[in-house]
Design a protein around this nucleic acid. Structure first.
Length: 454
RNA sequence: GCCAAGAUGACCGAGAGGCGAGGUGCAUGGCUGCAAACCAUGAUACUUGGGUUCAAAUCCCAAUCUUGGCCCCA
């Protein structure tokens, strides 16, 4: 399979360092506020990526950091008069809940920055020893001039990086030098060889990945906005500290999510949290919406596009529903035909997924398969065995994408049983050709969001 | 200013030199008491201007526009 590598700007054959084991790290959230749908886009994408890698037989360890110490957290705590740690824990918990709601559950280990301060300090010490970092009165900084290839991921050079900076710390050698350790004397703070203070932003990720993965690993992911400066800084830190390159074999970046063509921001008033979204939208539909665009492309969120996604997903679900219904009665002998279809579309689907996780194209194949099946069922039926093969393909598809394609059962639910009674009554009315009354019932059920199809 | 990504039909969205994916919407027909679902058919595309090529949505050069980054950000 091929993966687009931001470093080379090309699709490359995917080959993990250790045969079937894949070490995947994705930059996690800064927990100072609720996650928004842009986070949702990124984490759904990487969730799908992990699911597909596992489907392909790789054993994936998915590591994610949680930034729980940072200026934004401190500022927010001051605004709301809360303890920074309490605030961070609260939003970390809400983040986990949001991800669970979206069906994003592939992360094997969450690593908090504050749980890795010793590792951070030790990495900074190494950088100082090796001459890549220096201490000033305000902190410890990475000396970008000492690192030869600084900017190789974003394709920038040092001159670009050293202009147009505001509020430059005067103690730094170069404006682009970034903080590894910030000297502070007010809480929250930790002891260090350089006095009290707290870690800079970039260092936590490399300290964490070095701890769990070592200095080199397979995939590092995140949003496009992290390429510069965050990922550049990570490369500089880790490669300088270890002397090994590359730190990461494949850099994967997700495109932005815009809202009605504009960047989502609080000042524009178009800021949508995952919680807002899920108040009146099905998480499945949002997943489908996300995966109907390639993970690297920009995606435009609107009620209209979400609605289109809902209808598209339903088309697939209808067919799966029909397959399950047929399961009880199927005894046909058109197995060659159906097996052939299944084989063809399965291959096409996998080819698309192997091509840098091209989910929109993969979905197009699924839709074609759906159409072929619907057409075939007009005059052909497979045996139960082949039908089960088809259903299990849809199950695999659902597993990879994280879609729940199963028919929703009303068993054990009073309202479901009541609904069955209503439907039953209506059916009897229709048998007596009481059209007006039966249509009225159908209309009123539709108003409640319940589809009735005859 | 510098850097990056992008511009495909009414809307969403793949493709990356040679049969104009797919979904949603729309139109017509079939099925149906009607509607829905499903099937069939159809209309509407590759930002502009040059160039390379037997052949360009796809490559090259220019231009225009959009979004983003350069303090923080998935």
């Amino acid at each position: 399979m091929k993966i687009y590598n931001t470093m080379s700007r090309k699709k490359e054959q995917f080959k993990p360092m250790n045969d079937q084991r894949v070490k995947l790290f994705v930059c996690g959230p800064t927990v100072y506020d609720d996650a928004h749908i842009g986070h949702g886009r990124t984490y759904i994408s990487f969730d799908m990526i992990k699911r597909y890698l596992e489907y392909k037989g790789y054993s994936v360890f998915y590591l994610q950091n949680v930034t729980d110490i940072d200026d934004k957290i401190i500022n927010r705590s001051a605004e709301v008069d809360a303890d920074p740690e309490v605030l961070a824990r609260k939003f970390e918990k809400r983040y986990q809940e949001d991800m669970e709601a979206l069906g994003v559950n592939g992360v094997n280990l969450f690593a908090r920055a504050t749980d890795h301060v010793p590792e951070i300090i030790s990495q900074i010490e190494t950088l100082i020893e090796k001459g890549f970092a220096y201490e000033t009165s305000t902190g410890v900084y990475f000396d970008e001039a000492k690192f030869e290839n600084f900017g190789k991921l974003s394709r920038r050079n040092l001159e670009d990086l050293n202009v147009h900076r505001v509020n430059i710390d005067q103690t730094k050698k170069n404006p682009g030098d970034f903080a590894l350790w910030k000297k502070r004397d007010e809480e929250p703070l930790w002891d260090s060889p350089w006095g009290t203070g707290r870690p800079g932003w970039h260092i936590e990720d490399t300290a964490i990945t070095e701890e769990y993965f070592g200095p080199q690993y397979d995939i590092h992911g995140g949003g496009l906005d992290l390429i510069f400066p965050h990922h550049e800084a990570e490369i500089a830190q880790m490669e300088a500290a270890s002397g090994k390159s590359p730190m990461v074999r494949y850099w994967m970046h997700t495109g932005f999510l815009n809202v009605s063509g504009e960047k989502m921001s609080k000042s524009l008033g178009n800021f949508i949290t995952i919680r807002d979204l899920l108040e009146d939208h099905d998480p499945q539909v949002f997943r489908f919406f996300v995966l109907s665009t390639h993970y690297r492309s920009p995606i435009d969120f609107s009620e209209k596009t979400l609605d289109q996604a809902a209808k598209s997903l339903k088309r697939i679900q209808k067919t799966v529903e029909k397959l399950n219904e047929l399961l009880d009665s199927s005894a046909g002998n058109d197995d060659d035909y159906f097996s052939g279809l299944l084989k063809d579309y399965r291959i096409k689907f996998l080819e698309s997924m192997d091509n840098d996780f091209n989910t929109p194209e993969a979905l197009a194949h699924i839709f074609n398969f759906v159409k072929e099946l619907n057409k075939a069922f007009e005059d052909k039926t497979p045996s139960e065995k082949v039908l089960k093969d088809i259903i299990s393909f849809f199950n695999e598809f659902g597993e990879i994408m994280g879609f729940d394609l199963a028919v929703k059962s009303n068993d054990g639910d009073i309202s479901g049983e009541l609904l069955d009674i209503i439907k039953d009554v209506r059916q009897k009315l229709r048998e007596k050709k009481e059209w007006a009354l039966s249509d009225d019932i159908r209309g009123r059920l539709n108003d409640l969001g319940i589809d009735v199809e005859d």
